[in-house]
Design a protein around this nucleic acid. Structure first.
Lengths: 340, 340
DNA sequence: ACCCGCAGTTGAAACCTTTCAAAGATGCAA
DNA sequence: TTGCATCTTTGAAAGGTTTCAACTGCGGGT
């Protein structure tokens, strides 16, 4: 009702309701300890004055926050928003609220957000970091803010993490293509400095070797990023190869690449999967909605988010907490882009 | 370094550095007023003790926050993450940090987030609300937290807002189809309770009438949501029409619908744009990356975010602030899906 | 009449930082 | 040497909430 004159405090409410400070606080935090008539009086006063509890003061005194934060690498990538949905769901069960921060692949911004979140004394931080081995991640955990690394594995065992077995994912994709009779396959992805990409490529190689196929018929086509545009570029490079040596199948390190490749392939008059079979990775919603529904390796995104949240809550509340690394198993979803 | 024994405070730092509380605070907030040797001493102490400033206490005393929040309707929709990017950019210039909250189209969650953010006394709130005329939006603003409505127009003039002229957008889309010679067009979108959809449909009708075309040849096909799945369903309904009466062009209320329609059309052996021309809305990145690049109505997403941020900062800092409604002009991006 | 226990209420202390008036130190001119 | 201006540093107060030990009434048992 009344404007922002000087922010209404519990003191004002207490005066208006004719009770003490403590009672107002009890209404807020332990309503069962307050008699009905008093409670009503206080609630009325709050409503009339437009009281809004000051969270800074609450948290300062109570010593604990009601929010967890998820620092994502790229808010525009549907994969991360799907993970976030999983986080939100299980955070809600623990009466926690989620703030999403976007590091935008920038280590500097990531660091700044981590600082801010520590200062805010959030219950916990989930993060898909630019570099999972960066020093500042450990510093955060060392200073007492629970932290879980999402969708990245890191060297030490001194942090909680949830991830998906990317080597296995790479295997699944390439085994599927081998099953479909392909003997010339391109792996498209990069840069190889990204752990994910490296693991998927490694899995692809393993599957290839296990099938007794010659290494030189598994082509590595590196890209400079995992984007649609780069996928289109890779398609052009593929087209450029002499038809004898041109792979009839491609495994892309993520779905954005695969969608770009798909677009370029169809656009240049070739057909999917007849002229080129395509497997993507992540199984984002747009994968099944593509012009040719995309075969893709699915990661359990919601579970990833859910588990990460459970870990961070455990770290925050359980004194006997031990750091845990959870690895999920990916799953191949076969669709038209490889099945015809 | 040292674990979360009992959170290091300025007092500890002061003791360690052999200075007073006030000096530590000065190092933090007005380093220029502190002599070099003292500053170094304090900074060293901070590093050694692993001091992390308590933001709750800071904000309680200083009285202002360093964050703005953007409550989005659907974090999985690329449109909103693009707006968020614009917000982030201009927030950064004012030394503000952005927290993204996802209401997930749920009025209850939206309300809860608004409560939390008010309690946190954030600098300002940007929101794409479920219902732009909801009472609680006004309450927030009335209680002193600056609030700007993004991508929605509301009835009164008592809130700041930034939006895009959706009626004009609808006109542009349909005028383009008329220019291409179409005389049977379907408008696909819904539910009509969404203001956006209503406006775009209205613009479509206006363009149709202005061209002197008969109302019955502009077909309204309503959907229950603005999703890829619904787009596919709409495609099936279109296919079901007798070919005489079947529109050769469709204008979809957003790109997700258009992508679903595109997929269904191609999947059932028809061609785009020869058998069906398609116009989408929003021009998300996947629109240009679709198998057939999608003609779409582009909204200035980054500018939307930028302007909203500027408004909210003005409302927070300028005593002479007056509520402003900014409307942007959309732009048609013609691509293969209508040009052939 | 007395004591006990219990439900409800109170008010001071504590949480950690920033702010600001004032004290202290230093250097320079007279 | 004194006085004055400038630069640093100090310490107490304030900000709004929660917590908790202590207090008040009141009804019931004896």
């Amino acid at each position: 009702m009344n404007a922002a004159s000087r922010s209404v405090s519990v003191k004002d409410v207490a005066a208006r309701a004719g009770v003490s400070l403590g009672t107002v606080s009890n209404v807020l935090n332990r309503p069962d300890r307050v008699s009905d008539p008093t409670r009503v009086k206080v609630e009325t006063a709050m409503r009339e004055l437009g009281f809004v509890r000051n969270e800074s003061a609450r948290q300062l005194r109570a010593g604990h926050s009601r929010v967890v934060a998820y620092v994502v690498l790229d808010a525009a990538n549907p994969f991360f928003t799907d993970v976030a949905q999983g986080v939100e769901l299980s955070a809600g069960l623990a009466d926690l609220w989620l703030f999403i921060c976007n590091s935008n692949n920038d280590a500097e911004r990531e660091r700044a957000y981590l600082d801010l979140l520590q200062q805010q004394r959030v219950q916990g931080i989930l993060i898909t970091p630019v570099d999972p081995d960066a020093e500042h991640l450990r510093e955060v955990a060392g200073r007492g803010t629970p932290l879980v690394v999402v969708d990245r594995t890191q060297q030490g065992l001194d942090l909680c993490s949830v991830a998906v077995d990317d080597v296995l994912g790479g295997r699944l994709a390439v085994e599927h293509l081998i099953d479909r009779g392909h003997t010339q396959v391109a792996f498209i992805g990069g840069p190889l400095s990204i752990g994910q990409v490296r693991d998927r490529w490694q899995g692809a190689q393993q599957a290839w070797a296990d099938a007794g196929l010659p290494p030189e018929s598994l082509h590595l086509i590196t890209t400079s990023a995992l984007t649609v545009v780069e996928g289109r570029g890779a398609g052009e490079r593929l087209s450029g190869l002499p038809s004898r040596r041109r792979p009839m199948a491609a495994f892309c390190a993520n779905d954005l690449l695969a969608l770009g490749l798909l677009q370029q392939t169809i656009g240049s008059g070739r057909r999917v999967p007849d002229d080129l079979a395509i497997v993507g990775y992540d199984d984002i919603e747009f994968a099944s909605a593509a012009a040719v529904p995309l075969t893709s390796v699915r990661q359990p995104r919601h579970e990833l988010g859910r588990t990460a949240t459970e870990l961070v809550i455990d770290e925050a509340t359980n004194p006997a907490h031990t750091h845990t690394q959870v690895t999920f198993t990916p799953e191949l979803i076969a669709r038209t882009s490889t099945l015809g």
